[in-house]
């Protein structure tokens, strides 16, 4: 039905599960502005793009629309009294979140070098949610600071988990550790809703 895919994407019937980005946009951001600090390569371009997005999100929460959305989310009843449409802000917020997620996966894949199809996108949400919760955010309140701290901590735990646990248990435990930590964090957040 659809036009034939490019040969590297599939064998003519459906796309492969994992598409290599080698030679397309593999590491375009990572390589741009890359530099080395005492032997460690720092992907400068990716960091610059991330920084720019942080700034844009920060700025957005200072625009009229951003304030409206934030107010509507922290108290629906307050928002209604202030003449804000609850439904509209809900849709706006979801659209923006989805757009950012789309950008996020493009940035992720250029660094990772592959695009994963099918079930892979399903596994993206949970680690992200766990990150922001570990950063100290709650279901009703989150800042860019929470994002930065949380991502750093969560990824550190997973990176450190491997060498530490291998003292006791052999094998790569980080995937299991990720499951436990991320779902544990989400469960904890679920039990905290509506409490102060």
């Amino acid at each position: 039905m659809a036009p034939q895919p490019h040969p590297r994407a599939g064998d003519g019937r459906g796309l492969r599960t994992t598409l290599s980005l080698g030679g397309i946009y593999d590491k375009v951001l990572d390589r741009w502005l890359t530099f080395t600090v005492s032997g460690v390569r720092i992907p400068g371009g990716t960091l610059v793009v991330f920084g720019a997005l942080c700034f844009l999100v920060w700025l957005f929460f200072r625009t009229r629309m951003g304030i409206t959305i934030a107010a509507a989310r922290s108290s629906t009843r307050f928002a209604r009294a202030a003449g804000i449409s609850d439904e509209r802000t809900r849709v706006q917020a979801t659209v923006l979140s989805t757009v950012l997620a789309a950008i996020g996966i493009v940035v992720f894949s250029q660094s990772y070098g592959f695009v994963q199809l099918y079930t892979a996108p399903l596994l993206m949400a949970f680690p992200a949610i766990a990150c922001i919760l570990i950063g100290g955010a709650s279901v009703t309140r989150a800042t860019i600071g929470h994002v930065l701290v949380g991502t750093f901590l969560f990824q550190s735990i997973l990176t450190v988990a491997l060498p530490v646990t291998s003292q006791v248990i052999q094998g790569d435990i980080s995937e299991t550790a990720r499951l436990i930590i991320q779902n544990g964090m989400i469960l904890y957040a679920l039990t905290r809703i509506g409490r102060t």
Binding site: F126, T165, V168, I169, Q170, G171, I173, T176, A177, R178, L179, I180, N183, G184, I186, L187, L190
Partner: peptide, 21 residues
Amino acid sequence: IAGFFANGLYQLLFLFAVGSI
């Protein structure tokens, strides 16, 4: 989510703990 969480613990038990600890 509790199911996912328990799945992590279950993996920890049978994929790593069994046979080592």
